[in-house]
């Protein structure tokens, strides 16, 4: 518990200008949806706000079914379906300075993936440094139950769509550039997506990944 609170506190310190707000029906005001609010909401309701739960929505596009479209501003991931619909999932995205936009593809997939923090994360984060040689897959692993590895021109981008051991964090700008989902959602996505699927990442004002 202390470790969880310490982690939330660290995230609050590192938090950027917040991108999501939640409506407080008691005060009738919109309040910033920060890690503390998110953790409290999840504790009270046992789930994320309804907008971030998996649902089928209208989605007018010429992109092929099976294409993944990520709206980093609104914290949604769309999986394009037939008949101008998509399955919409809630996501967490990169915090300030770690967001990106671009067109990539799913290079490979893994169940209960091993997590090896990149060198720059090892250098800046003592928690990550403990796992410099890799952390085995499992419920405490930050990549969660599944990972979809994002590639560009056959090369690993270092970015992934993955699960999380912090399910309350959906809807936040919180990651180092990866797209995080609740484990149930990432398992659902994993089962529907094939390697080679196109992934379009939209995020206002973010750095463009190579090639675009």
């Amino acid at each position: 518990m202390i470790r969880v609170l310490a982690a939330i506190t660290a995230l609050i310190v590192a938090a950027p200008a917040l991108a999501t707000q939640i409506y407080n029906p008691n005060t009738r005001t919109w309040v910033d949806y920060d890690p503390r609010q998110a953790a409290r909401y999840y504790q009270m309701h046992g789930s994320v706000p309804k907008e971030f739960r998996r649902q089928v929505v209208r989605f007018r596009t010429a992109e092929k079914p099976g294409t993944i479209i990520i709206d980093g501003d609104k914290h949604f991931l769309y999986l394009v379906q037939e008949d101008f619909t998509a399955i919409r999932y809630g996501i967490g995205v990169g915090r300030d300075g770690f967001g990106w936009a671009g067109i990539v593809e799913v290079g490979r997939k893994a169940e209960w993936p091993r997590w090896t923090p990149p060198a720059e994360m090892v250098a800046r984060d003592p928690e990550a440094a403990k796992w410099a040689n890799g952390m085995p897959g499992g419920p405490e692993n930050p990549l969660g139950a599944r990972a979809l590895y994002l590639y560009e021109d056959g090369r690993d981008t270092i970015y992934r769509i993955h699960g999380t051991h912090q399910p309350w964090s959906i809807g936040l700008d919180i990651s180092s550039g990866c797209i995080r989902m609740n484990n149930d959602d990432v398992i659902d996505l994993y089962n529907r997506v094939q390697p080679g699927a196109k992934v379009i990442v939209l995020m206002s004002g973010a750095a463009l990944y190579r090639g675009v």
């Binding site: 309804k50 596009t61 939209l202």
Partner: peptide, 26 residues
Amino acid sequence: AAAPPTATVRATTATAPADLQLICAS
């Protein structure tokens, strides 16, 4: 007059729906 909104969350900056953005790009 102050009926609560139907949405429980919103982005601090309003943007275009993703499908409309991609229609423009296409």
